[in-house]
Design a protein around this nucleic acid. Structure first.
Lengths: 204, 204
DNA sequence: CTGAGCATGTAATCGGTTACATGATTCC
DNA sequence: GGAATCATGTAACCGATTACATGCTCAG
């Protein structure tokens, strides 16, 4: 219940060296630069903008918003409505803008991580039949192609738009990553195919 | 405190559809196929094998071990030592082996995710001076090159080893990913360089 | 009449991380 | 004398997710 906790004892992912907030919270602070918004608005904005590489749950957004207020990075304005539920609009403060820029400038970041359970499975695939493994790889291909389609769609949508310069660069990462994933999967398929029928069968 | 919870009410990352354990726990179950081991041994084995794409904290390993026992996937054997602290050796059971294979075969996995705070920063880089951004990109390059060096080292170590077939494939993913990251970073640098001095300066 | 959209939130968990505690031995 | 290795674990906490609750309006 204490939002101004300084003596950070052991914790989760932990905001990088000296940072007061995790990057995900700064992300929603960044989105507030688009204008005054409700949590609901933010949730939709996330989908339309950063959704392909960062998608917090709604409840997370609402609690981040409260956190930003606690730091004085945003202010709340309640708006009564009779046709729809009342809403709370959040606005970034000058202090919040400064904090955002400080975060942007700070070089030390939480580490980049890839969480890919399939890699774990592949690592232990000596315990798996070749057929099952091939099926798994193909499933991965299916998923990667699906991702690629979505990214391509996004690319078309923001092609040429000048204000989308940085978002476009981010998107390019997604595309490059997906391409490399697909090439690798293809290679995996080739290599396990080239491997003649030796080794332990299903091991049972 | 209930380890046999069926009615999974709201939770964290959540083990995939119908899975009883998260993939990280299966990972350490998989490592137990290398032989009877202590938590300490496992922690070192992780570093030498899967460490480059999966590295749980020691405390996590110990608690996973307890969990595996709770499911009957491993057994514990206490070994008294007088020169060193006593140890507990864990061994995978036939039931555990079956569970491992079932997990390996199950196609539905926890989703693949990439957590890369830098992408968030790049997305909002309109609020950042060009110099700061360039510095950030270069820092990313530095880190990616470091990763690459480590992976190359590993590659040399397991080159040609036949029993390393699958671990090698996994390593290839890491290398492909790192290469694509580096190419993309180079491209980002080029594109922000090509962009003439228009747009908002530091914005303050 | 039904379902989608608007709008906010609580409850309950869970995985995972850091920091700390403890204590012996062996190597430099 | 001090660091590294061996060895296990607890405490505290944090980010994040799912499920659920509530209730109104408007389009098909």
């Amino acid at each position: 219940m204490n939002s101004t906790n300084r003596t950070t004892k052991g914790a989760g992912p932990r905001p990088a060296s000296g940072a007061d907030l995790p990057s995900s919270t700064y992300a929603i602070l960044g989105l507030l630069t688009f204008g005054e918004m409700s949590g609901y608005d933010l949730s939709k904005l996330v989908d339309r903008t950063v959704g392909h590489f960062f998608s917090p749950a709604k409840s997370q957004i609402y609690s981040d918003l409260r956190r930003l207020m606690g730091h004085g990075y945003a202010t709340e304005r309640r708006v009564e409505q009779q046709d729809r539920p009342n809403k709370r609009l959040y606005k970034i403060t000058p202090k919040g803008e400064r904090a955002l820029r400080t975060w942007l400038e700070r070089p030390d970041d939480e580490p980049t991580t890839v969480k890919m359970p399939f890699l774990l499975k592949l690592f232990f695939s000596a315990h798996l039949s070749r057929e099952s493994l091939v099926a798994q790889v193909q499933e991965q291909q299916r998923q990667a192609r699906e991702d690629r389609e979505q990214l391509r769609q996004l690319e078309r949508e923001m092609a040429g738009k000048d204000e989308m310069f940085y978002p476009y660069l981010v998107l390019q990462f997604g595309l490059a990553y997906t391409r490399s994933r697909l090439r690798w999967l293809q290679d995996v398929l080739r290599q396990i195919g080239a491997r003649v029928g030796d080794e332990d069968p299903p091991e049972r």
